[in-house]
Computed example of a mutant assay.
Amino acid sequence: MKKLFAGFALSMSLFCSISVGSAFAETPLSSAVNAGLGAPYKYAGTTLKGFDCSGYTAWVFNKLGVALPHTSKGQAHEGVWVDKENLRPGDLVFFDTSGGAGISHVGVFVGDGKFYHSADQGVTISKLSESYYAKRYVTARRVLSDDQYDQFMTDTK
Rank of each mutant, 00 (worst) to 15 (best):
M1C: 04
M1Y: 12
L4N: 13
L4K: 15
F5I: 13
A6V: 12
A6R: 08
A6M: 11
G7I: 12
F8Y: 13
F8K: 15
F8G: 07
F8T: 11
S11I: 13
S11K: 15
S11G: 12
S11W: 15
S11D: 14
M12G: 14
M12W: 15
C16P: 07
C16S: 15
S17N: 09
S19E: 15
V20P: 00
G21N: 15
G21C: 08
G21S: 14
A25Q: 10
E26L: 14
E26N: 12
P28D: 13
S30Q: 04
V33Y: 06
V33F: 05
N34P: 06
A35G: 13
G36K: 01
G38I: 11
Y41F: 12
Y41R: 10
K42I: 02
Y43W: 15
Y43I: 06
Y43M: 10
T47D: 09
L48V: 13
K49C: 07
K49R: 15
C53A: 13
S54K: 10
S54E: 08
G55A: 10
G55W: 09
Y56Q: 04
Y56V: 07
T57F: 02
A58Q: 15
W59N: 04
W59A: 10
V60M: 08
L64K: 03
L64I: 02
G65A: 05
A67E: 06
A67R: 12
A67C: 00
A67D: 05
L68K: 07
P69R: 11
T71I: 09
T71E: 12
T71H: 06
S72T: 05
G74E: 12
H77L: 14
V80E: 09
D83L: 10
K84L: 11
N86H: 15
R88P: 02
G90I: 11
D91T: 05
L92F: 10
V93E: 03
V93W: 02
F94W: 09
F95H: 03
D96Q: 07
T97M: 09
S98H: 07
G99N: 06
G99C: 01
G100C: 04
G100N: 11
A101P: 00
G102D: 04
I103Y: 01
S104T: 11
S104K: 00
V106R: 03
G107W: 00
G107V: 02
G107H: 02
V108M: 05
V108L: 03
F109G: 02
V110Y: 04
D112I: 02
H117R: 03
H117F: 01
S118E: 00
A119S: 14
A119T: 10
Q121R: 15
V123T: 03
T124W: 01
S126G: 06
K127P: 04
L128C: 05
L128N: 01
S131V: 08
S131G: 06
Y133N: 05
K135S: 11
K135W: 01
T139K: 12
R141A: 00
R142T: 06
R142S: 12
L144R: 03
L144M: 13
D146P: 00
Y149I: 02
Y149R: 07
Y149C: 01
Q151S: 08
F152I: 06
T154S: 12
D155W: 05
T156N: 11
K157R: 13
K157C: 01
